[in-house]
Design a binder for these strands. Sequence first.
DNA 1: ATGGATACCTTGTAGTCCAAGGCATGTAAA
DNA 2: TTTACATGCCTTGGACTACAAGGTATCCAT
Lengths: 115, 115
Amino acid sequence: MASGNSNFLSGVPELMILRLVQDQEMYGYEIVQAIQAQSRGQLSFGEGVVYPVLHGLEKDGALKSQRREVGGRSRVYYSLTSRGVRRLFDLTDSWTATTQAIQAVLKGGSALRTV
Amino acid sequence: MASGNSNFLSGVPELMILRLVQDQEMYGYEIVQAIQAQSRGQLSFGEGVVYPVLHGLEKDGALKSQRREVGGRSRVYYSLTSRGVRRLFDLTDSWTATTQAIQAVLKGGSALRTV
DNA sequence: ATGGATACCTTGTAGTCCAAGGCATGTAAA
DNA sequence: TTTACATGCCTTGGACTACAAGGTATCCAT
Protein backbone atom coordinates (compact mmCIF):
# COMPACT_ATOMS: atom_id res chain seq x y z
CA MET A 1 0.00 0.00 0.00
CA ALA A 2 2.64 2.45 1.07
CA SER A 3 3.16 5.04 -1.63
CA GLY A 4 3.45 8.75 -2.29
CA ASN A 5 7.22 9.22 -2.33
CA SER A 6 7.15 12.99 -2.60
CA ASN A 7 10.44 14.06 -4.17
CA PHE A 8 13.96 14.31 -2.75
CA LEU A 9 14.70 10.88 -4.18
CA SER A 10 16.86 11.44 -7.21
CA GLY A 11 19.73 8.98 -7.08
CA VAL A 12 18.47 7.42 -3.88
CA PRO A 13 17.38 4.07 -5.35
CA GLU A 14 20.91 3.45 -6.59
CA LEU A 15 22.38 4.23 -3.19
CA MET A 16 19.85 2.04 -1.37
CA ILE A 17 20.43 -0.91 -3.68
CA LEU A 18 24.20 -0.78 -3.41
CA ARG A 19 23.94 -0.55 0.35
CA LEU A 20 21.57 -3.49 0.69
CA VAL A 21 23.59 -5.71 -1.59
CA GLN A 22 26.69 -4.87 0.42
CA ASP A 23 25.42 -6.91 3.37
CA GLN A 24 24.31 -9.93 1.37
CA GLU A 25 23.48 -10.87 -2.19
CA MET A 26 19.86 -10.15 -3.00
CA TYR A 27 17.41 -10.38 -5.86
CA GLY A 28 15.22 -7.61 -7.27
CA TYR A 29 11.89 -8.51 -5.79
CA GLU A 30 13.57 -8.94 -2.42
CA ILE A 31 15.18 -5.51 -2.66
CA VAL A 32 11.85 -3.85 -3.38
CA GLN A 33 10.45 -5.17 -0.13
CA ALA A 34 13.60 -4.71 1.91
CA ILE A 35 13.57 -0.98 1.19
CA GLN A 36 9.97 -0.73 2.33
CA ALA A 37 10.63 -2.80 5.42
CA GLN A 38 13.84 -1.14 6.57
CA SER A 39 12.40 2.32 6.04
CA ARG A 40 9.25 1.32 7.88
CA GLY A 41 7.11 2.07 4.84
CA GLN A 42 8.47 5.56 4.37
CA LEU A 43 10.25 4.64 1.14
CA SER A 44 8.67 2.63 -1.63
CA PHE A 45 10.42 2.04 -4.94
CA GLY A 46 8.47 -0.16 -7.31
CA GLU A 47 9.92 -2.81 -9.57
CA GLY A 48 9.82 -0.30 -12.42
CA VAL A 49 12.44 1.63 -10.49
CA VAL A 50 14.55 -1.17 -9.06
CA TYR A 51 15.03 -3.44 -12.07
CA PRO A 52 16.34 -0.77 -14.44
CA VAL A 53 18.78 0.44 -11.78
CA LEU A 54 20.02 -3.11 -11.23
CA HIS A 55 20.59 -3.57 -14.94
CA GLY A 56 22.38 -0.25 -15.18
CA LEU A 57 24.66 -1.02 -12.27
CA GLU A 58 25.53 -4.40 -13.69
CA LYS A 59 26.25 -2.86 -17.08
CA ASP A 60 28.58 -0.40 -15.34
CA GLY A 61 30.33 -3.26 -13.60
CA ALA A 62 29.25 -2.27 -10.11
CA LEU A 63 27.15 -5.41 -9.66
CA LYS A 64 27.46 -8.96 -10.85
CA SER A 65 24.47 -11.25 -11.18
CA GLN A 66 23.86 -14.93 -10.93
CA ARG A 67 20.63 -16.66 -11.87
CA ARG A 68 19.59 -19.37 -9.47
CA GLU A 69 16.61 -21.67 -8.96
CA VAL A 70 15.14 -21.63 -5.49
CA GLY A 71 12.03 -23.61 -4.66
CA GLY A 72 10.90 -23.70 -8.28
CA ARG A 73 11.52 -19.95 -8.49
CA SER A 74 14.00 -18.38 -10.83
CA ARG A 75 15.82 -15.54 -9.11
CA VAL A 76 18.61 -13.25 -10.21
CA TYR A 77 20.95 -12.65 -7.32
CA TYR A 78 23.10 -9.54 -7.33
CA SER A 79 26.30 -8.88 -5.39
CA LEU A 80 28.84 -6.07 -5.22
CA THR A 81 31.99 -6.00 -7.31
CA SER A 82 35.05 -4.10 -6.11
CA ARG A 83 33.90 -1.37 -8.41
CA GLY A 84 30.51 -1.40 -6.73
CA VAL A 85 32.15 -1.04 -3.34
CA ARG A 86 34.00 2.04 -4.53
CA ARG A 87 30.81 3.42 -6.01
CA LEU A 88 28.94 2.85 -2.77
CA PHE A 89 31.60 4.71 -0.81
CA ASP A 90 31.57 7.61 -3.23
CA LEU A 91 27.79 7.85 -3.23
CA THR A 92 27.62 7.66 0.54
CA ASP A 93 30.15 10.47 0.87
CA SER A 94 28.26 12.52 -1.68
CA TRP A 95 25.02 11.88 0.16
CA THR A 96 26.47 12.98 3.48
CA ALA A 97 28.06 16.12 2.06
CA THR A 98 24.90 17.07 0.19
CA THR A 99 22.53 16.63 3.11
CA GLN A 100 24.86 18.58 5.39
CA ALA A 101 25.03 21.40 2.88
CA ILE A 102 21.25 21.47 2.66
CA GLN A 103 20.99 21.46 6.44
CA ALA A 104 23.33 24.44 6.56
CA VAL A 105 21.01 26.43 4.34
CA LEU A 106 17.92 25.28 6.18
CA LYS A 107 19.36 26.29 9.53
CA GLY A 108 19.79 29.83 8.35
CA GLY A 109 22.47 32.29 7.36
CA SER A 110 24.86 31.21 10.09
CA ALA A 111 27.61 31.17 7.49
CA LEU A 112 27.03 34.87 6.94
CA ARG A 113 26.75 35.80 10.58
CA THR A 114 30.31 34.54 11.04
CA VAL A 115 31.29 38.04 9.97
CA MET B 1 33.26 28.33 -10.63
CA ALA B 2 31.69 25.90 -8.19
CA SER B 3 29.84 23.17 -10.02
CA GLY B 4 29.26 19.43 -10.19
CA ASN B 5 26.11 18.96 -8.10
CA SER B 6 26.09 15.18 -8.20
CA ASN B 7 22.51 13.99 -7.71
CA PHE B 8 20.30 13.78 -4.61
CA LEU B 9 18.87 17.18 -5.46
CA SER B 10 15.41 16.55 -6.81
CA GLY B 11 13.06 19.06 -5.20
CA VAL B 12 15.85 20.69 -3.25
CA PRO B 13 15.91 24.01 -5.17
CA GLU B 14 12.29 24.62 -4.27
CA LEU B 15 12.93 23.92 -0.62
CA MET B 16 16.02 26.14 -0.54
CA ILE B 17 14.24 29.03 -2.22
CA LEU B 18 11.25 28.94 0.08
CA ARG B 19 13.52 28.79 3.11
CA LEU B 20 15.66 31.72 2.00
CA VAL B 21 12.70 33.89 1.17
CA GLN B 22 11.22 33.12 4.56
CA ASP B 23 13.90 35.24 6.27
CA GLN B 24 13.70 38.21 3.93
CA GLU B 25 12.42 39.07 0.49
CA MET B 26 15.01 38.30 -2.16
CA TYR B 27 15.48 38.45 -5.92
CA GLY B 28 16.55 35.65 -8.23
CA TYR B 29 20.14 36.54 -8.84
CA GLU B 30 20.61 37.05 -5.13
CA ILE B 31 19.16 33.65 -4.35
CA VAL B 32 21.55 31.93 -6.74
CA GLN B 33 24.51 33.33 -4.82
CA ALA B 34 22.99 32.93 -1.38
CA ILE B 35 22.66 29.18 -1.92
CA GLN B 36 26.30 28.93 -2.94
CA ALA B 37 27.44 31.08 -0.05
CA GLN B 38 25.40 29.46 2.70
CA SER B 39 26.33 25.97 1.53
CA ARG B 40 30.00 27.01 1.30
CA GLY B 41 30.10 26.18 -2.39
CA GLN B 42 28.72 22.68 -1.95
CA LEU B 43 25.44 23.54 -3.66
CA SER B 44 25.23 25.48 -6.88
CA PHE B 45 21.94 26.01 -8.70
CA GLY B 46 22.23 28.15 -11.80
CA GLU B 47 19.75 30.75 -12.94
CA GLY B 48 18.30 28.21 -15.31
CA VAL B 49 17.17 26.33 -12.23
CA VAL B 50 16.18 29.17 -9.93
CA TYR B 51 14.10 31.35 -12.23
CA PRO B 52 11.74 28.64 -13.44
CA VAL B 53 11.17 27.51 -9.86
CA LEU B 54 10.41 31.08 -8.78
CA HIS B 55 7.89 31.44 -11.60
CA GLY B 56 6.30 28.14 -10.74
CA LEU B 57 5.99 28.98 -7.06
CA GLU B 58 4.45 32.33 -7.86
CA LYS B 59 2.02 30.71 -10.25
CA ASP B 60 1.05 28.32 -7.46
CA GLY B 61 0.50 31.23 -5.11
CA ALA B 62 3.34 30.32 -2.77
CA LEU B 63 5.30 33.44 -3.62
CA LYS B 64 4.35 36.97 -4.53
CA SER B 65 6.66 39.24 -6.49
CA GLN B 66 7.27 42.93 -6.69
CA ARG B 67 9.44 44.61 -9.32
CA ARG B 68 11.61 47.36 -7.95
CA GLU B 69 14.37 49.66 -9.24
CA VAL B 70 17.53 49.71 -7.17
CA GLY B 71 20.59 51.68 -8.32
CA GLY B 72 19.47 51.66 -11.94
CA ARG B 73 18.88 47.90 -11.67
CA SER B 74 15.52 46.30 -12.15
CA ARG B 75 14.98 43.54 -9.62
CA VAL B 76 12.06 41.22 -8.95
CA TYR B 77 11.70 40.71 -5.24
CA TYR B 78 9.92 37.61 -3.98
CA SER B 79 8.33 37.02 -0.61
CA LEU B 80 6.32 34.22 0.99
CA THR B 81 2.56 34.12 0.99
CA SER B 82 0.67 32.27 3.70
CA ARG B 83 0.40 29.47 1.22
CA GLY B 84 4.15 29.53 0.76
CA VAL B 85 4.64 29.25 4.50
CA ARG B 86 2.47 26.16 4.59
CA ARG B 87 4.33 24.73 1.64
CA LEU B 88 7.67 25.36 3.30
CA PHE B 89 6.54 23.57 6.44
CA ASP B 90 5.26 20.60 4.46
CA LEU B 91 8.41 20.33 2.40
CA THR B 92 10.62 20.60 5.46
CA ASP B 93 8.72 17.83 7.19
CA SER B 94 8.90 15.71 4.07
CA TRP B 95 12.63 16.36 3.80
CA THR B 96 13.24 15.37 7.39
CA ALA B 97 11.17 12.20 7.16
CA THR B 98 12.78 11.17 3.90
CA THR B 99 16.37 11.67 5.02
CA GLN B 100 15.69 9.81 8.24
CA ALA B 101 14.20 6.92 6.32
CA ILE B 102 17.23 6.82 4.05
CA GLN B 103 19.52 6.91 7.06
CA ALA B 104 17.67 3.96 8.53
CA VAL B 105 18.39 1.89 5.46
CA LEU B 106 21.99 3.07 5.27
CA LYS B 107 22.62 2.14 8.87
CA GLY B 108 21.67 -1.41 8.19
CA GLY B 109 18.95 -3.92 8.87
CA SER B 110 18.50 -2.83 12.46
CA ALA B 111 14.79 -2.95 11.81
CA LEU B 112 15.10 -6.62 11.02
CA ARG B 113 17.44 -7.50 13.83
CA THR B 114 14.71 -6.35 16.21
CA VAL B 115 13.47 -9.92 15.85
C1' DA C 1 -10.24 -22.93 -11.17
C1' DT C 2 -9.62 -18.72 -9.34
C1' DG C 3 -6.92 -15.45 -7.12
C1' DG C 4 -2.94 -13.92 -4.93
C1' DA C 5 1.86 -13.96 -4.00
C1' DT C 6 6.28 -14.52 -6.09
C1' DA C 7 9.58 -13.16 -9.71
C1' DC C 8 11.18 -11.34 -13.88
C1' DC C 9 10.78 -7.60 -17.40
C1' DT C 10 9.70 -3.20 -20.63
C1' DT C 11 7.26 0.92 -22.24
C1' DG C 12 5.67 5.67 -22.02
C1' DT C 13 4.96 9.73 -19.42
C1' DA C 14 6.00 13.33 -16.58
C1' DG C 15 8.92 15.95 -13.79
C1' DT C 16 13.29 18.09 -12.85
C1' DC C 17 17.88 19.67 -13.20
C1' DC C 18 21.13 21.92 -16.07
C1' DA C 19 24.08 23.96 -19.64
C1' DA C 20 23.80 27.13 -22.93
C1' DG C 21 22.32 30.86 -24.83
C1' DG C 22 20.04 35.69 -25.37
C1' DC C 23 18.93 40.54 -23.77
C1' DA C 24 19.99 44.81 -21.17
C1' DT C 25 22.38 47.94 -17.94
C1' DG C 26 26.17 49.61 -14.99
C1' DT C 27 31.09 50.06 -13.91
C1' DA C 28 35.93 49.54 -14.19
C1' DA C 29 40.00 48.79 -16.77
C1' DA C 30 42.75 49.19 -21.05
C1' DT D 1 36.46 54.84 -26.09
C1' DT D 2 35.94 50.27 -26.25
C1' DT D 3 36.49 46.26 -23.90
C1' DA D 4 35.36 43.32 -20.40
C1' DC D 5 33.01 41.84 -16.40
C1' DA D 6 29.41 41.83 -12.96
C1' DT D 7 24.64 42.45 -12.32
C1' DG D 8 19.94 41.12 -13.44
C1' DC D 9 16.29 39.20 -16.11
C1' DC D 10 14.74 35.36 -19.14
C1' DT D 11 13.93 30.83 -22.30
C1' DT D 12 15.21 26.71 -24.93
C1' DG D 13 16.76 21.85 -25.55
C1' DG D 14 18.54 17.88 -23.87
C1' DA D 15 19.23 14.38 -20.51
C1' DC D 16 18.22 11.92 -16.68
C1' DT D 17 15.13 9.55 -13.52
C1' DA D 18 11.23 8.04 -10.90
C1' DC D 19 6.94 5.98 -11.64
C1' DA D 20 2.66 3.82 -13.12
C1' DA D 21 1.11 0.57 -15.95
C1' DG D 22 1.29 -3.32 -18.29
C1' DG D 23 3.11 -8.02 -19.79
C1' DT D 24 4.80 -12.99 -18.87
C1' DA D 25 5.27 -17.05 -15.96
C1' DT D 26 5.21 -20.15 -11.84
C1' DC D 27 3.54 -21.69 -7.42
C1' DC D 28 0.19 -22.20 -3.69
C1' DA D 29 -4.10 -21.93 -1.29
C1' DT D 30 -8.90 -21.54 -1.58
